[in-house]
Design a protein around this nucleic acid. Structure first.
Lengths: 249, 249
DNA sequence: TGAATAGTGTCTATTAGACATTATCTC
DNA sequence: GAGATAATGTCTAATAGACACTATTCA
């Protein structure tokens, strides 16, 4: 039976780091939250070259004893100052970006993650810049001139937005962007924010209700009191149909 | 204006390879093909430790001048001997596996890819083992005891299968597993192979036809001649419904 | 002629979409 | 009461699912 040492020796004989040099591994985070019926993304201002002063997605290196998902959680706290024990957060892997020249300094491969923060639809969680970044702030996604972003972060952001918008068709992922208990109006606001389209309230209620569980509680604002729900099924079957993007006038 | 050298110097001051050591980057390939109404996956037998003699997904290291997708194409040819100029092939990124201990020898992060090979539904492309592997062969996916696979390749295979099965609900990705021109029966066989469920032929025709383009040609086998189609739309709206997995009797 | 397959037709139950109506609350 | 919102009801067109039926070919 091979010892770990002899395994490694055998392996290193066939693995030539000169032919296949190791790469620096990072995570980049597309952090979404909804306020005022607008989808916002968390951005940090770069404090160093390259792209000094440009906005970028928060992110950082993956440590030797963590996987990419753990690094995403850690960097989320470090780079944005968010206290994850005080916010509902859902993180899922998005895609990996590995173009050889995506970072001009060295080979950096980044595992992008989609991060969804729950909220009340009014207030955004407060961001505090980490050590690397000059500042951290929320930006409305649909007003963003994505050419401003550093590296290939415009591509990553677009992929994150498309993943979110797409999964909202056939899953209840939108519930990650509201509070644990939510009204159908709050959930519909998420759809409005992400899809940039108004959905008729009556039909939305009828269709979405099948995937939700009523708590029995109600909440009072202006108008009739609204029932509170929590996420029921993970799936919406058959899916919601995403209206075609309204050509901006 | 910063030169590339000073950028790199500044960067290296803030990047400590001891804290965040670089990782070896690989690709692993979930290569699917359909024959005899069964979904097959290409596996190679490991020729070295660890997992000597066990079956594994084909894969290999990402070179310094290629991204993961390019490495996937290259390794597909090198590890399985497939001549990509002679087969229809679709490759898409699946997910990245980065558990620190997923390879006992060293830190290896792998970008898994889903690879779909077109075929006539009868013959599988011939595989030839590359230099690293003892042999390469097709295995019926649904008969595979996935515990046999090396590393975390059972997880990767399961993810590939689920991605394929899921995307077949709402996209025409199944057309990647048949020839460019295909009959509705051939396409239905793909659904049968992947979903492990028979779909009624009449309703399948009616629904799928909306996403396909007829070529006008027909092909003759046993029974009435069948019309040939090519892929039309990328999307199937509303989606096909995947029957619940039939509890094996 | 019989077997096999392709493709269409038919019927029903479901439901999405449009929109009206009723209910409940605040100011 | 006016205004606003929630939730339900109504009507129609579309269609999925089940399944019968016809058409076309080979053996």
């Amino acid at each position: 039976m091979s010892s770990n040492e002899s395994q490694e020796a055998e392996f290193l004989a066939s693995y030539d780091p000169a032919e296949f040099p190791p790469v620096a591994l990072t995570v980049d985070l597309v952090v979404f939250a909804v306020a005022n019926r607008e989808l916002h993304v968390a951005l940090v201002e770069r404090g160093g070259q390259p792209f000094l002063g440009r906005m970028a997605l928060p992110g950082g290196f993956v440590g030797p004893d963590e996987d990419a998902l753990a690094a995403a959680h850690r960097e989320l706290e470090e780079e944005t100052g968010l206290d994850l024990s005080r916010h509902r957060v859902v993180v899922e892997q998005l895609a990996t970006y590995s173009a050889p020249d995506r970072d001009p300094r060295m080979r950096v491969v980044s595992v992008a993650h989609l991060v969804l923060l729950g909220g009340d639809g009014v207030n955004l969680p407060e961001l505090q810049a980490g050590s690397d970044a000059a500042k951290a702030q929320w930006q409305p996604v649909h007003e963003l001139e994505s050419r401003q972003l550093a590296f290939d972060h415009a591509d990553i952001l677009a992929a994150g937005l498309e993943r979110l918008a797409g999964k909202m068709e056939y899953t209840t992922i939108a519930t990650a962007l509201v509070q644990e208990e939510f009204t159908l109006s709050a959930l519909r606001d998420v759809y409005t924010a992400v899809w940039q389209a108004e959905l008729p309230a009556g039909n939305f209620t009828r269709k979405m209700r099948a995937s939700l569980t009523p708590t029995g509680r109600k909440v009072q604002a202006v108008g009739a009191p609204a029932s509170l729900f929590i996420k029921g099924s993970e799936w919406i079957t058959p899916p919601m149909v995403r209206p075609v993007v309204t050509a901006a006038g």
